[in-house]
Design a protein around this nucleic acid. Structure first.
Length: 489
RNA sequence: GUCCCUAUCGUCUAGAGGCCUAGGACACAGGGUUUUCAUCCCUGCAACCGGGGUUCGAAUCCCCGUGGGGAUGCCA
């Protein structure tokens, strides 16, 4: 029987969820779930200086909102706990000492590097690690320093002979790196906490993780991990390194996706009005292909379709434009009620005349909304008409112009005035415009265009002239029509 | 500097030596449907980084360039 697949998502609590991290979580989830395996959440909080209040809650909330349900984790328990690394602190030292005993690690009593003596990027050269050759200390010297409580770290001892460490990656295939370019990385910090690199190896082994899914930035340090596994005599897990997600800045430069490229955290995107399902669907396709032309997938469908064969090697640029499109697809799929409810939180109409008309306005909006945060600017003209230029009355396709607008408004204004109220009369109002077009033997679009511009001041509006006039109410609508006549002159 | 990874339309990608006149999607442009704009539908535009091999045949395999990215932290 083959071993059950176990993957983990191991974020550090930084207070926000970068979409790159979320995609890593998604693939780890899909890999496990596509094979009926388990998905584990582990919190990597070994950097005490970076502690952020409530950051763990953000992680829980994000995974929940994205529907990436973990089978084990700090909040749900499991057989391999604790799942928070700071609570496992005591474990790591014993393992580090085991490596010292085996000759695969050593005490280093060197002082921390000065922050300000940083070498410039250009002349940066390979540093083996410990600057003071602590690896050569005699047992007596070590004992003496320990007796004096000299602060220390424990470093991995790399045999920088001519050998090469080779490993296989499910995405990148065989990768070989010469041991001489590996440094004696720190395993246990001065404060007794393990580094990420060490805690990972220990925890992944202890938690029985079968597939390590992580970003490709770890590709070049993977040999160091393997040397650790070997020193312990542990099985090396399968590696699934993922291509990075890049962003393009205003100057056109490409680099790891970060805040200067736009909103990159799941929370920010949701605040902007992207739906979690759309975000998940979009990032699933950023670096992975189902090998078909299909693009819209629910999480369950992704789980069904997922395969590591579809994973890409080259970095991908995050395209907000395509995310917008995908989001609009998800918005169109929502029920009218759900949309109205969700969109209201973005509409900023509480306490205005539009509040009571929200449901009908929302119905008009649903087919036209790409991102929910666009809604205020789509409907603000209903509350206050913007300044507009008479050139808007020109529309080639419907042969409309300021002149045709003037005529239609002049002719129709008295007709509109005859209606006692515009409430519930959207259809009737549109019908009057259509009848007018028929009587005058012109394309329907021509009078429609003129009235639309006059009552809205915009070329793109939710709904047609009739709908807009109803939403405005008789008084305001007629006021705007008169204003248009004055404007055209 | 050194090491590692990578390279198909502007962007996300399909392509496992002949199915490639390189397919799909976003964006963009044009047209159509609709009571106008939008939605929707159709059409168009647009790519194998360069040079050498291997082969009857290369987007696909190999090598060398070049471009891009990553690593080189007591961050993860």
């Amino acid at each position: 029987m083959t071993k059950q697949v176990r993957t983990r998502f191991a974020p550090s609590p930084t207070g926000f969820m970068h979409v790159g991290n979320l995609r890593t979580a998604l693939y780890a989830y899909l890999l496990a779930k596509s094979q009926k395996g388990n998905f584990v959440l582990r919190i990597e909080d070994t950097d005490q200086a970076r502690y952020v209040e409530n950051a763990v809650e953000v992680i829980y909330a994000t995974l929940k909102s994205a529907n990436l349900i973990h089978d084990e984790g700090p909040d749900v328990g499991g057989n391999y706990g604790p799942y928070i690394q700071s609570e496992r602190k005591h474990l790591y030292k014993d393992y580090a000492l085991e490596l010292v005993k085996k000759g695969a690690a050593y005490y280093c009593f060197c002082e921390k590097h000065d922050e300000d003596e940083e070498v410039s990027q250009d002349e940066k050269t390979f540093i083996e690690g410990c600057p003071g050759h602590c690896a050569n200390l005699s047992e007596a010297e070590i004992a003496e320093k320990l007796a004096k409580n000299t602060p220390y770290v424990i470093r991995q001892k790399i045999n920088r002979d001519g050998s090469t460490t080779t490993f296989n990656d499910l995405v990148y295939g065989e990768v070989a790196i010469e041991n001489k370019v590996l440094d004696d990385q720190i395993l246990l910090k001065q404060d007794g906490m393990p580094t990420y690199n060490f805690a990972n190896v220990v925890d992944d082994h202890l938690m029985n993780i079968t597939h390590v899914v992580r970003g490709s930035e770890y590709l070049s340090s993977t040999p160091k991990y393997n040397l650790l596994y070997q020193a312990f005599g542990w099985d090396i897990p399968e590696y699934v390194h993922l291509p990075l997600i890049m962003g393009r800045d205003a100057e056109g430069n490409v680099s790891k996706l970060s805040k200067r490229h736009g909103s990159v955290s799941f929370e920010n995107l949701v605040q902007e009005g992207y739906l979690p399902e759309a975000i998940i669907n979009y990032i699933a396709l950023l670096g992975w292909s189902p090998k078909s032309d299909r693009e819209i997938f629910t999480l369950a469908e992704l789980t069904e379709a997922f395969n590591t064969n579809g994973l890409n090697k080259a970095a991908a640029i995050f395209d907000y434009g395509k995310l917008r499109w995908m989001n609009s697809e998800y918005i169109k799929m929502m029920s009218a009620d759900d949309f109205a409810k969700m969109a209201k939180a973005f509409a900023q109409i509480d306490g205005t005349a539009l509040e009571s008309k929200w449901q009908s306005l929302a119905n008009l909006l649903q087919q036209r909304t790409e991102v929910l945060s666009d809604i205020p600017s789509m409907i603000d003209f209903l509350l206050e008409q913007p300044e507009y230029d008479t050139s808007l009355f020109n529309h080639k396709k419907s042969k409309a112009s300021p002149e045709t607008a003037k005529k239609v408004i002049t002719d129709l204004l008295p007709e509109f005035e005859k209606l006692a109220t515009f409430d519930g009369q959207a259809e009737q109002l549109n019908q009057m415009i259509m009848d007018y077009a028929a009587q005058n033997e012109i394309k329907v679009g021509q009078p429609m265009w003129g009235v639309r511009i006059a009552v809205s001041g915009k070329t793109v509006t939710p709904g047609g002239p009739g709908e807009i006039m109803e939403l405005l109410g008789k008084e305001e609508a007629l006021k705007r029509l008169n204003k248009a006549l004055a404007l055209i002159g």
